[in-house]
Structures are given as C-alpha cells and as structure tokens.
C-alpha cells in the first residue's frame, strides 16, 4: 500500500541536497596540493556559509582601548581572561572561550580625545575558523603586543 511517507521519501531522493555544499565536490586525493592550488587561484572552492548579524565569533581585543578595570575577568564564566599586572592589561585565551560575549557587554571602553563616545576594547568578530593543533598558538591568544615582546 503506497503511503504518504513513501512519496515523500522518493521525492526527497530526487531533490538536490539540502545541506550546505562541501568546499569541493569530491574528496581530493591530495589535500595539500589542493590547498596550494587554491592559494594560487587555480581551483575555486565553495565559500563558507555567511554568518548572521550578531554572530559571536572569535573575540577581538584592542589593548589601546583597555583601561584595566578587570570587569571582564569578573564576569567571564570560563576564566578565559588572564590579568597581566605589569602592563595592567589582559590576555585572552581563545581556546578556553565559550563565546557568550558577556565581556563585550560589560566592557566600558575608552574615549580617545576628540571622540564622542567610548569605544569598547573587546568586540566579537565574525571569525569562526579557529581550529588549531596547539591551544597556545599565536592565533588563539589575544594579548597586547608588548606582552609578547617582553615575554611576560
């Protein structure tokens, strides 16, 4: 006895895939050479799906705007912020971050002379491709440049 479910499933078989497309249509034999080709511009890949407005991606930290109030350290649920007492700035470990954006809400920011409103030191970027082999790699730590120079 044909049922509604059968028709739906057969219809589904004939439709185009609903999922987002893979970067390339078929799995490549050699990923490294594919990446090289993409960098040279020989092969085009499907771009990542655009993120919506208000997406909470990797945290961006602007040390110039940081006033050292430590409010972000108070509210951070994952303890991803570290206080650098020598510089009176913070260091942020992206690998510990849980992307709740509480620190962005609470950040008072700093007003440079000539500006009308204070601009926050912390902001959420659109960046979401943050996979890495090393959790302490440069890509995953947001800190003032002086901290790296002095090795604090």
């Amino acid at each position: 006895m044909p049922t509604k479910a059968m028709f739906l499933m057969i219809k589904q078989m004939l439709q185009r895939p609903f999922t987002n497309p893979f970067p390339v249509k078929h799995a490549p034999k050699d990923v490294t050479s594919l990446v090289e080709k993409i960098q040279k511009g020989e092969v085009k890949i499907h771009p990542p799906v655009p993120v919506p407005e208000g997406f909470r991606g990797k945290l961006h930290y602007d040390p110039e705007r940081c006033i050292g109030c430590r409010l972000c350290i108070t509210v951070c649920p994952a303890n991803a912020m570290e206080w650098i007492p020598e510089l009176r700035k913070i260091r942020h470990y992206v690998s510990r971050c849980m992307f709740c954006a509480l620190c962005v809400d609470v950040c008072p920011g700093k007003k440079f002379p000539g500006e009308e409103k204070a601009v926050k030191a912390l902001s959420m970027s659109d960046e979401f491709l943050i996979a890495d082999y090393d959790k302490y790699s440069d890509n995953l730590i947001e800190e003032p440049p002086e901290a790296k120079e002095k090795g604090i």
Binding site: P52, F55, R56, C100
Partner: peptide
C-alpha cells in the same frame, strides 16, 4: 531534520548562535 533547520536559523538570527544562545 531538514525541516528543523528553519527554527535553528531563526534562533541563530535572534541570539547569534545555533546552540548555546547566551
């Protein structure tokens, strides 16, 4: 699950994430 994507898209648009809305 194909039908479920719609509500997840709405949640993503409102809260900024598909899951763990904060």
């Amino acid at each position: 699950w194909k039908g479920r994507e719609k509500v997840l898209d709405i949640l993503e648009a409102i809260t900024g994430n598909r899951i763990n809305y904060a």
